[in-house]
Design a protein around this nucleic acid. Structure first.
Length: 868
RNA sequence: GGGCGCGUAGCUCAGUGGGAGAGCGCUCGCUUCACACGCGAGAGGUCGCUGGUUCGAGCCCAGCCGUGCCCACCA
């Protein structure tokens, strides 16, 4: 007990690492597989990158999941939070490539085998940092059962899925226009492309007609791609060009004859109304080319340099160099009609940040049209629910317009595609083909292909493992919206396809935490913070010094504070990070600690744990406690974490500390034996209630509770029962209002805070059980004056008034001002109520209880005025 | 171009039809024996603007202004 006595402040830095270790040593987070998924509870973590570090989004995301998991575990449910890390093909490969370059070598020099070995070594050295950070956050993941998406067993699942989908005809290889990322040297999927606003020069170029009479002018921002033009398109109804349809123009610099075609896609009012068609380097043109059976010509290679059949003098130039060369030649020939500045959106690679080069490439694709159907059905039918519900429409509209998925990546780090070639032969299988002369497809699969299998592959699929039988399907999936399509939608599709079951029933989409100035948190912008700097103390970037927070380092707020703060901040939409909330939470941990000190040091070590409410305040706090439990539970069921967190704060600060503990202090000091049981009950139930949000401080305090053995995290019996007690609630509510009225009156009347005023309670009733409390908390003493002295002031309270007798402590003038002010306020409110009640429309049309309530109010106000 | 949000106290945000709220900040007071990371009492808002529906609108409807995000093949 010595710590309790001596430590008047709660110190998370000392407590949290110690508690985290206790949890890990207990094995509590590792449930043995048993029972059925319907009676168990499981969540699959959004796979962190193996070489990643925790950012604010992770901190919120995992605080939410931990809250859900801990709540279930404490109820005695077998709860498993499935842990894995993602090999993150692109990101990890780029990191290691940079490292080897710094060492003076390169990926190419090392060769595939050596490079991949190098990545594994990198992963062993730097990987797993994020796991340690999750432990520090208090995340109760099953650390004893950690997967990696490149593990042997996981790889087997990936290959099985590939082969099965190939055999079904869903996976195919094709030459198609893809998003080529020159920075990575790989194709990427549509979802990895982002649009950025760019100012380009729009060139108007004359294409002479074959007839020699005139020309057609087209507009383009990419003149270098004209070398791959195969046609010119105009709108069929465009009178300016109608007579030209079917004729031909000469492609400048190349000499190829381009047919002039008509296509509805062309916008007559944009540019010149004539569009050059370049199926090899533009997605829209690719489609038009297919409609009209046009050839596809490529003049830009995968290295971003010009290739044949571009005229030889351009070959080898970068696309940008070529643009300048092409423009120069066109200028010489007088074919540049004019130019203008043009602001438009251009595709960029999210990964490398380079501008996407659309080009035709031989890649692997996955057909989605069949897979998507059941994934749409399960959302429509409500078997998979999205929270908030808005996302249902977002999900469905994406699913309904889904296109083939480019799944091959020209990388070395990842799941190599299980396809072998020998001449014209192709072999697809999970094992290498027999015989000699086979070459394996060098590409690897998109990382999201493997992570899309996570909920079942992590549990051992395709083996029918006990873990799979016990914990799949999972229950909730918690994520920010940025990976709904990349990950969530694909898990639903692949889960249904390969297990015949939905992978989870609820998808909760939480906020994205922005910097205080509303920008996205980002390291490069200087708008990001490391959650560890909040937990353990660390540098506060300038952007975060706003909002009244002092400059300098963050204090060591502790994981509990960060968790509560993030939950309190979160909502259905994006929120700005508010350090205030974290600070508020830290105060809550301290409040819990000190309230517990009061109780635990007060009741002594031999206290009984049985509840024995003796007084009205005992009955009141038990009713309030049960209500707080029910409210919190309902809020978490609705994934309303901010109100859950704020509600816990209100209960602890308001009901428990401000009122109940203050009310029972005299009984506590008197050592009343019945009180101890009630206090310990309220304390332990409160600790259990708060624990899913603030696990550390509650676990620490629980270790001091007499008779408590084991871990709070394992749950304690919920001995609460329905304790609605309207009478007690009304009585304490009257008391609270009366105390506040008297305190306000005293303050305004300039009464010395410590002074006890002689007074008389003049009420019709309702204070039988609380008059003692009222006297102590408001510092008044009820007594009849023996000399028949008259009161000098009357403080109205529910049901009557407290009349104050003269004493040396009273400043009558100030008291008079206070009374006058209150009278003015009352008269205004009475007028307002009278006006409302004299409105015939209100009395006639408003619901009866509303009208009655208004009448009651008026009566009360008049009584109070009279009492003054 | 389509879709989804947001605009409430100095700051960050609750509040979705019947008397405007919280935390922080601010003012005043308090070494009250759990906590000064505390306690008590206050000040502070024409709820973006304009119209409408209603007995009654921060809340419902329409328009406008401002602002954020998602999706989309206008060169």
């Amino acid at each position: 007990m010595s710590d309790l006595e001596s430590k008047t402040r709660y110190d998370p830095s000392e407590v949290e690492p110690r508690i985290a270790q206790r949890w890990l040593d207990s094995g509590l987070f590792h449930p043995e597989p048993a029972g059925a998924p319907s009676e168990n509870y499981s969540i699959a973590i959004p796979l962190p990158n193996v070489t990643g570090v925790l950012h604010m989004g992770h901190a919120l995301n995992n605080s939410i999941q931990d809250c859900l998991i801990r709540r279930q575990r404490m109820r005695g449910v077998r709860a498993k939070w499935i842990l894995g890390t993602d090999h993150a093909g692109i990101g990890t490969q780029i990191q290691v490539e940079r490292a080897v370059v710094r060492e003076g070598t390169s990926r190419e020099e090392l060769g595939r085998e050596a490079f991949v070995e190098r990545v594994w070594a990198w992963r062993d050295e730097y990987g797993g940092q994020i796991i340690e950070q999750l432990k520090r956050l208090g995340a109760s993941l099953d650390y004893e059962d950690e997967r990696f998406t490149l593990d042997e067993g996981y790889a087997r699942a990936v290959q099985d899925v590939f082969v099965a989908l190939y055999n079904k005809g869903y996976i195919y290889r094709d030459r198609y226009l893809v998003n080529w990322d020159p920075g990575m040297g790989s194709a990427i999927s549509d979802l990895e492309v982002e649009q950025r606003e760019v100012t380009d020069t729009l060139y108007y170029i004359d294409y002479p007609l074959v007839t020699g009479s005139g020309s057609v002018t087209i507009a383009t921002v990419r003149p270098e791609t004209m070398l791959a033009d195969v046609a010119i398109a105009v709108h069929p109804d465009d009178d300016r060009y109608r007579r030209l349809v079917g004729e031909k123009a000469v492609l400048p610099l190349v000499g190829r004859k381009l047919k002039i075609i008509a296509d509805e896609y062309v916008k007559p009012d944009f540019g010149t109304g004539a569009l050059k068609i370049t199926p090899g380097h533009d997605p829209a043109d690719f489609d038009i080319g297919q409609r009209h059976g046009l050839p596809q010509i490529s003049v830009i290679g995968e290295d971003g340099r010009m290739i044949e059949p571009a005229p030889e003098r351009f070959v080898g130039m970068t696309a940008l160099e070529c643009r300048d060369a092409v423009v120069a030649e066109l200028r010489e020939q007088g074919l540049i009609n004019r130019t203008e500045e043009y602001l438009h959106e251009v595709p960029y690679s999210q990964r490398s940040g380079e501008r996407i080069e659309p080009l035709i490439s031989l890649q692997w694709f996955m057909r989605m049209d069949e897979l998507v159907k059941p994934a749409i059905d399960v959302v429509n039918s409500g078997h998979v629910r999205l929270w908030p519900e808005n996302y249902k429409r977002v999900y469905l509209s994406w699913m309904e317009n889904i296109r083939p998925w480019t799944i091959s990546r020209q990388l070395w780090w990842g799941h190599q595609i299980p396809v072998w070639y020998r001449g014209d032969e192709r072999y697809v299988g999970t094992e290498p083909p027999p015989g000699d002369g086979w070459t394996r497809d060098p590409d690897v699969l998109d990382t999201w292909f493997s992570s899309g299998l996570f909920p079942f592959a992590a549990l051992g699929w395709p083996e029918e493992t006990p873990a799979l039988q016990a914990f799949y399907p999972t229950d909730a999936l918690v994520t920010a919206r940025d990976i709904i399509f990349l990950w969530v939608a694909r898990m639903v599709m692949l889960g249904i396809e390969f297990t015949g079951q939905i992978p989870f029933t609820d998808v909760y989409v939480h906020s994205i935490i922005q910097a205080p100035d509303g920008r996205r948190m980002s390291k490069s912008l200087g708008t990001g913070i490391d959650p560890m700097d909040l937990i353990e103390g660390g540098p506060r970037p300038p952007v975060f010094a706003q909002g009244g927070q002092p400059a300098g380092d963050f204090p060591a707020y502790g994981a509990d504070a960060v968790r509560w703060g993030l939950l309190a901040m979160s909502s259905a939409q994006d929120v700005k990070f508010a350090e205030d909330k974290v600070a508020q939470a830290q105060q809550l941990t301290n409040k819990l600690w000190n309230a517990s000190r009061l109780i635990l040091l007060g009741v002594g070590e031999d206290a009984r744990a049985a509840i024995s409410p003796r007084t009205v305040e005992d009955r009141w706090i038990l009713a309030r406690l049960e209500r707080a439990k029910a409210d919190t539970s309902a809020r978490i069921d609705r994934f309303d974490f901010s109100h859950a967190a704020l509600g816990l704060y209100d209960f602890v600060y308001g009901d428990l500390c401000d009122w109940y503990l203050e009310l029972v202090k005299p009984r506590l000091r008197a050592g009343e034996p019945e009180l101890a049981g009630t206090l310990l009950h309220v304390l332990t139930q409160t600790l259990a209630l708060v624990h899913p949000v603030m696990p550390f401080v509650t676990e620490e305090i629980y270790s001091y509770v007499p008779g408590a053995d084991g871990l709070l995290a394992a749950g304690i019996p919920d001995v609460g029962e329905t304790r609605d007690d309207a009478a007690a609630e009304a009585a304490i509510m009257r008391l609270i209002e009366a105390v506040q009225a008297l305190r306000a009156w005293r303050d305004q009347a300039g009464v010395r805070p410590g002074a006890t005023l002689p007074a008389r309670l003049t009420v019709s009733g309702g204070y039988e059980d609380t008059a003692e409390h009222l006297q102590r908390l408001a510092r008044v003493a009820f007594a009849e004056p023996d000399d028949g002295e008259q009161p000098v002031a009357s403080v109205p309270i529910q049901g009557g008034a407290v009349e104050i007798f003269p004493s040396g402590e009273l400043d009558l003038e100030a008291a008079g001002r206070k009374v006058a002010a209150r009278r003015e306020q009352l008269e205004a409110e009475i007028q307002r109520a009278e006006r409302k009640l004299s409105n015939d429309g209100f009395v006639a049309k408003a619901p009866k209880d509303v009208v009655d309530a208004e009448r009651d109010k008026l009566t009360r106000l008049r009584e109070e005025l009279a009492a003054l």
